[in-house]
């Protein structure tokens, strides 16, 4: 019952962190972000498959959840 979380290069650089994590499925993205010690406000985009999701999305087994930061704006 695991899923993976991948951070965008922008978020990796912002946090100075690794880019790939394996997590337990069944939690919300927000819970997963907090459990990784990331400030949820710094995550601008949550993407699963081809679609943007909210941080309340429940992570399913086998999902690859991609997280993006916005460091520069327009």
């Amino acid at each position: 019952m695991t899923a993976s979380i991948r951070l965008s290069d922008s978020l990796k650089n912002l946090l100075g962190s690794e880019g790939l994590f394996t997590i337990e499925a069944g939690h919300s993205v927000r819970e997963a972000i907090v459990s990784l010690g990331i400030n949820p406000d710094l995550v601008a985009v949550v993407s699963v498959g081809d679609e943007m999701q909210s941080k309340d999305y429940l992570i399913q087994e086998g999902d690859t959840v991609r997280l993006l930061a916005v460091i520069g704006g327009g």
Binding site: S8, V45, G74
Partner: peptide
């Protein structure tokens, strides 16, 4: 090769609407 290219192309500058609303 950048992680995030796919999402950026899909949504462009509108990626931030949801997030700006949250913060």
């Amino acid at each position: 090769d950048a992680e995030g290219l796919k999402e950026w192309i899909r949504y462009g500058t509108t990626t931030v609407v949801d997030w700006c609303n949250q913060v």
